[in-house]
Design a protein around this nucleic acid. Structure first.
Lengths: 200, 200
DNA sequence: ATGATAGCCTATCAATGATAGGTTGACGCA
DNA sequence: TGCGTCAACCTATCATTGATAGGCTATCAT
């Protein structure tokens, strides 16, 4: 088994990444690979190279780790959307933003589930706040894209929320009920976007 | 503590409801009240008045109970939709079906989650099959409503799937991320229906 | 009567999240 | 140097949960 100084000592003089970040990195890797519920605190600890109770020196409980990964998942989505956002304008941008959103969900199902499905105790004040903040930052990209097309900010907000919800539904149902006899996927996605945004 | 003959003997001569149904009834009550993850097999057993291991004489595992309740949840939804379905026709019927769907999700959040979110091991052949069947029976109501409006069956299928997904998204996000600063709910729902079905 | 069977129960597992309490090593300071 | 302090860990251990093993008992056909 690993000794305590092993990990840090073999790679770096001081602190590698504050151990907390290291835990989150390993947890993220495991969560994205195996899903939220399938990963135990012992697995995370082993991946990091510390004992399971040592996790609790950095996080009050398992949910706190999940909250951080929820925030990271929003970060991944946000980066994807910003990339599209910066590359286009107008109605085309809106459509591609939606497409990028759906692609994210289908390509990173575990991340998507952590971000949107996870029954995380968002009750904790700080966790709730930061998670909400991360979600809002991501959502604001979509809202801005609508703002470009709709003069009324309230209308843009409303449109963004309904479209967001609509996309979420498609991704969500595709992920959680794959046994359903869906129409061919690309056709389904296109039809869904047509319905939400109007025909291309 | 209860004795074994107590429950059945005090209420009925023969078999009350085959014990299995009794277990499902109590489990449903608990699940709807406290949510899927919050209910343990011991709680269910205690509610029924039997020991926890006795559950396993009727179900192979906890997930099997959840699958049955998933099917029941679809049953509740189906009944609601059929009621609306029988009372109206045309575009108005479609809109009211969607509204009934959304109402169901918001009024019976636990049932909705069991039906759509539950990470149930639908791997088991029988469970998967019956769960899928229940879902299809419910979905077919929506498909038929579209069939009344669209001549092409394939178009109706596609439309029904996209609209279903769209509604699911709204309900889903309202249930799982209530902390998000949503627009006023009735307005959001109306706007969502307008977007999915066209303005009323 | 009697042997099989259904339906339960007690005892017990293994896995998991979480806690308690001790050990170690670095660092400041007399 | 010697000593107190403190952070970071570790081992041992809990309580809870889903699940299994094996025995008891009443009913029922023969």
């Amino acid at each position: 088994m690993e000794q305590k100084g092993d990990k840090a000592g073999s790679t770096m003089p001081g602190k590698t990444l504050d151990r907390r970040e290291q835990i989150l990195d390993e947890a993220q890797r495991l969560f994205l690979r195996h899903g939220l519920d399938a990963v135990t605190t012992r697995q995370i600890a082993q991946a990091v190279g510390i004992s399971q109770p040592s996790l609790y020196a950095h996080f009050p409980n398992r949910d706190a780790i999940a909250v951080e990964l929820c925030i990271r998942a929003f970060g991944i989505l946000e980066r994807r959307l910003r990339k599209v956002d910066a590359a286009m304008t107008g109605a085309a941008r809106l459509r591609e933003l939606c497409r990028a959103y759906i692609d994210f969900g289908l390509e990173e199902p575990a991340a998507y589930r952590v971000a949107f499905h996870a029954d995380i105790a968002m009750d904790e004040v700080s966790g709730k706040h930061r998670g909400l903040e991360a979600g809002l930052a991501t959502f604001s990209i979509l809202r801005s894209a609508f703002g470009e097309l709709l003069a009324d900010p309230a209308a843009a907000e409303l449109a963004a929320q309904t479209v967001w919800a609509g996309m979420h539904g498609l991704v969500s149902i595709l992920l959680t009920r794959p046994e359903f006899p869906f129409v061919e996927r690309t056709r389904l996605i296109s039809a869904h976007l047509d319905r939400l945004l109007g025909p291309a």
